[in-house]
């Protein structure tokens, strides 16, 4: 198991390098640069700045310089937030995003799996149709519609909860953003769990368990849950990565200084190092979570284990 994990980590290095190279090229290929603004700088000042940030060097040289820093754990200086290193920015912003994301995923998992199981057990009843219908709405209505609506209802009209993260304090300021972030995930997880459990319940080994006189509850708990969770697992890897690294919309609506906000500003401002740094950070998290998913797969499905 440990050997397998090590091999996988090593195997991730080429993937990561490819991501870095493509991201680097794309960031630099975008028109404009970090120091373009309405006010045109005098040529010698512009040249000075470019030299200070090594932007006058050939692209290949810049790339290797960047890689060199990366190996030492340095993502470079931010071009826009002067005096900040990209690593510091991520280090400050990520805990904010992660806390929010982890709470949302936890909520989404518990609620989604429960609703999915409940719907699967009452397949084709009114309850099931209702759940599936609501889940479909949850998937199709975008978060930038739901989040402001929630603010309007619960913060402005009812005044139960704070409208923004910064203005509130304590646990209450988490409630709206966590729910907003969790809603589409609840919908996906509900649908996945429902479909997968229905399929498992039709399999021969469930028929065997019924023939053995096991109670429905035991059949679900003992025989069906584990196989039904497998498709969900493949979805959860990338989904957790996406949610942990911050939702741009939710952070914007609730004013949370998370990674998502910096990602957008980095891209818009041509803050090369910031945009690149967050991309690489995101890629690393996706790779790491996929590794965790694969290891869990091996644990859950004995047929995929190396003999």
């Amino acid at each position: 198991m440990l050997r397998y994990a090590c091999l996988r980590v090593l195997g991730a290095i080429p993937t990561l390098l490819l991501v870095i190279a493509i991201a680097f090229l794309m960031v630099h290929a975008a028109p404009g640069g970090p120091f373009d603004s309405e006010r045109v700088l005098p040529p010698d000042i512009a040249a000075n700045i470019e030299r200070a940030y090594h932007l006058d060097e050939p692209l290949s040289q810049q790339f290797f310089r960047y890689l060199q820093g990366l190996v030492q754990g340095d993502l470079g200086p931010s071009f826009r937030y002067r005096d900040y290193r990209v690593s510091d920015i991520i280090g400050d912003a990520f805990p904010q995003s992660m806390r929010l994301g982890a709470l949302s995923m936890l909520l989404a998992f518990v609620v989604g799996v429960s609703l999915g199981i409940a719907a699967a057990l009452r397949k084709n009843t009114l309850f099931d149709r209702l759940i599936s219908g609501v889940a479909m709405i949850g998937i199709s209505v975008p978060i930038f519609v739901v989040a402001p609506l929630m603010v309007l209802v619960f913060a402005v009209l009812l005044d139960w909860l704070p409208a923004s993260f910064a203005s509130g304090n304590g646990a209450s300021r988490f409630i709206l953003p966590v729910i907003a972030l969790a809603l589409p995930q609840i919908a996906y997880i509900t649908r996945l769990t429902r479909a997968s459990l229905i399929e498992v319940l039709q399999s021969d080994y469930i028929r065997t368990a019924r023939a053995q006189g096991l109670k429905s509850a035991s059949i679900i708990r003992y025989h069906a849950i584990k196989p039904a969770m497998l498709p969900l697992l493949s979805y959860l890897g990338p989904a957790i990565a996406a949610v942990l690294t911050g939702s741009v919309v939710v952070e914007q609506v609730f004013g949370i200084p998370g990674v998502g906000q910096f990602f957008i500003s980095g891209a818009v401002n041509r803050d090369y190092t910031l945009a690149l740094g967050i991309t690489i950070f995101y890629a690393a998290i996706v790779i790491a979570l996929n590794l965790v998913v694969d290891l869990l797969y091996g644990y859950l499905d004995p047929r995929t284990r190396a003999r």
């Binding site: 399999s203 021969d204 080994y205 368990a209 025989h223 584990k226 196989p227 499905d301 004995p302």
Partner: peptide, 14 residues
């Protein structure tokens, strides 16, 4: 009861 195909009739995950 004993079923025809013992591979699919036994739970592969347990």
């Amino acid at each position: 009861m004993v079923f025809q195909d013992p591979l699919s009739a036994l739970n592969p995950y347990i």
